[in-house]
């Protein structure tokens, strides 16, 4: 009997755990896909001007109206380098559909250039510094680590942020959805 009660309680606990799990899932999804609200405005990011590897200033708002993936990275960050081939593939696949990747490298221009060449990087990488990392903190990069990725929808709202590497299947799902949501 006691064993039965225990089992029952366990079941009930498991049920609650499952419910709590679903709630967490919903919460996580809400956090990640929080598409509404002015707090999701990518304006501070889009207002950024950073030099490219040739020293020429580039404004992020030149890609306004596109689905924009901004990836903070560095050559000294191995997990950053490991995920970038997936970004190259995605850029190639969706470039005709209004997708633009932009790297912000917390690094030296010659190192960025060297790695970009090795990878056949098909999107620009701008040169960031302290200011760029501080800005990423405001976007959710609490400990200012890399990689950190922000996906901006066509309306200039932050649709997704990712601390650490982006799962390639997840990336594909998000991009497919955001690209099909024409404004």
């Amino acid at each position: 009997m006691s064993a039965h009660i225990k089992l029952g309680r366990y079941k009930s606990t498991a049920k609650w755990a499952a419910l709590a799990g679903s709630a967490l899932l919903a919460l996580a999804a809400g956090l990640y896909f929080g598409l509404e609200g002015p707090q999701n405005s990518a304006a501070p990011l889009m207002g950024l001007t950073l030099p490219d590897v040739d020293g020429k200033d580039q404004r992020l708002d030149q890609w306004k109206g596109k689905v924009l993936v901004v990836n903070f990275w560095a050559t000294w960050c191995e997990p950053c380098r490991k995920e970038m081939p997936e970004f190259v593939k995605a850029q190639a696949r969706f470039s005709g559909k209004g997708l633009q990747f932009v790297g912000i490298a917390i690094d030296q221009p010659d190192k960025i250039r060297q790695f970009a060449r090795e990878l056949n990087l098909n999107y620009p990488s701008l040169v960031g510094g302290y200011g760029a990392l501080e800005l990423s903190k405001g976007l959710g990069n609490r400990v200012m680590a890399l990689p950190f990725t922000v996906i901006v929808n066509r309306n200039g709202e932050i649709a997704y942020t990712q601390m650490g590497p982006l799962n390639s299947v997840k990336l594909d799902l998000i991009l497919t959805e955001l690209i099909s949501n024409a404004t």
Partner: peptide
Amino acid sequence: LCAGPLAVLAADVNLL
């Protein structure tokens, strides 16, 4: 599909 992002979310919360 949820395993990846949830794991990263947890990692983010705990990152020192």
